[in-house]
Simulated assay, not measured.
Amino acid sequence: MTISQTAAPPERRVPKAIQAVAVRHPGRWIAVAVITVLAAMFIHLLATSSVLHWDVIGQIFTYRTVIAGLGRTLGLTLLAMAIGLVGGNLLAVMRLSRNPVLSAGSRLYIWVFRGTPVLVQLFFWNFLGALVPTVGLGIPFGPTFVTWNYNDLVGLFTAATLALGLNEAAYMAEIVRAGITSVDEGQTEAAHSLGLTQAQTLWRVVLPQAMRVIVPPAGNETISMLKTTSLVSAIALEDLTRAGQDIASRTLHQIPALVAISLWYLLLTSVLSIGLYYVERYYARGANRALPHTPWQNVRKNLLGSKRATVTGGTV
């Protein structure tokens, strides 16, 4: 007869507490110190410079010719981007077409307009009247029914709009093409199996999915176009930049005029950036699990996060 003995349970060992040591980032503090010093130097320069006359900057900022130039700048930006968007979509569809003539024509257009400077194209459209004195409507190589003088038909504003818009169409074509090709081909095949035509598939299935790829670079192109319009001052069009140059030449306040004009461009680009952010956020629906925070939500999150960290640090 054997007697079974129960083995004693092993002694539990309590693990030692982990002493976590925060990783030090000396490079960050050096960068913060450098940025702080540079910011302080810049603020000191703005406050003590004898060249910056802030009262003059305020007067130039709201001057009548500056406001008029601002309106032309905004008009050029809107019209040029409208031409660029419409033309870019057409060129992208032509580029992806199976018709070799349409595809080659689109490639040739993009090659020419992307390969020449915008300033050269501005001069070209402005002086095209020397090559084509009259513009008419009629039968090709036949009689002409109505004719106009080119310089009367195409003024400075129209020439600038055509140059900027047609140039933008070449860049937008590549952006739209990249967005269309980013959509899986199975989407097109599924749409065709449901009986949708090629145009219906492109408009209802492909483009809505491609917009999340198209919108961010298109927004950058819009902001870039706002600043590119300053080149029209080279053909004596009174835009925002030209208005500032004229005031600087009359009053000899070059730096205040440049600062006032720069403030207008910064204000406009900031407004555009906020608007484009919400457009991009709208088309991001379905692509991400959660929509990105708005700027106001980021501010609230950072403020509340810092407050909570402070409270937690005080109670430990």
Rank of each mutant, 00 (worst) to 15 (best):
S193E: 07
I3Y: 10
M225A: 11
L237A: 12
L85Q: 11
Q121Y: 03
L156K: 08
V118N: 12
V213F: 11
K307G: 02
V176N: 02
L240A: 10
L268M: 13
E189Q: 09
R212W: 00
S224Q: 11
T251H: 01
L304T: 07
E189L: 08
A163H: 00
A8I: 12
A20T: 03
L237I: 14
W148R: 00
R95V: 01
E168C: 08
G115Y: 10
L202W: 00
L74F: 14
A290T: 15
G313T: 05
M81N: 15
T229H: 08
I83W: 08
G305T: 02
S50F: 12
V14W: 04
L153T: 01
G84S: 15
N89E: 05
V23L: 07
G71Q: 15
Y171G: 11
R107A: 14
R308G: 11
V206T: 13
L79M: 10
N302Q: 12
A309S: 13
H53E: 15
M172S: 05
Y265R: 10
R72V: 15
L162I: 11
T77N: 13
L74G: 10
L268P: 06
P217Q: 05
T294L: 10
L38F: 06
V56S: 14
Q121P: 03
A8G: 09
P295H: 04
A260H: 07
L156W: 00
E189M: 04
I57G: 09
P117C: 09
A7L: 15
L78R: 05
A47R: 12
A170L: 01
L291S: 11
R212L: 02
T65Q: 15
T201A: 08
G75H: 04
T77Y: 12
G105F: 04
F141T: 01
L74K: 05
V215C: 05
A290D: 10
R24Q: 10
V23A: 12
N220M: 05
Y109A: 03
G165R: 01
L162M: 05
W203I: 10
V118P: 07
G87C: 09
I83P: 09
E238D: 09
I35S: 13
G75E: 12
L272Y: 07
V120A: 15
D246C: 00
R98A: 01
Q59H: 13
V146S: 00
Y283R: 02
V93Q: 02
I274W: 12
G179R: 03
W125Y: 11
F42V: 07
T73N: 13
P295Y: 04
L137H: 03
R24V: 09
L266D: 03
V135N: 06
G142S: 06
D246F: 01
R64Y: 08
P143K: 01
Y150S: 00
G105T: 03
S270F: 10
L231K: 10
A82R: 05
P133R: 09
I60E: 04
G219N: 10
V101A: 08
L102D: 00
I235Q: 13
P216M: 06
V112Y: 05
A39L: 13
I110N: 02
G58N: 13
S224C: 08
R95N: 03
L268V: 12
V32Q: 04
G219D: 11
L108M: 04
L166E: 02
G138T: 10
I110G: 02
I57S: 08
Q187R: 06
A163M: 00
S249H: 01
Q297K: 12
L252Y: 13
A163S: 10
D55P: 14
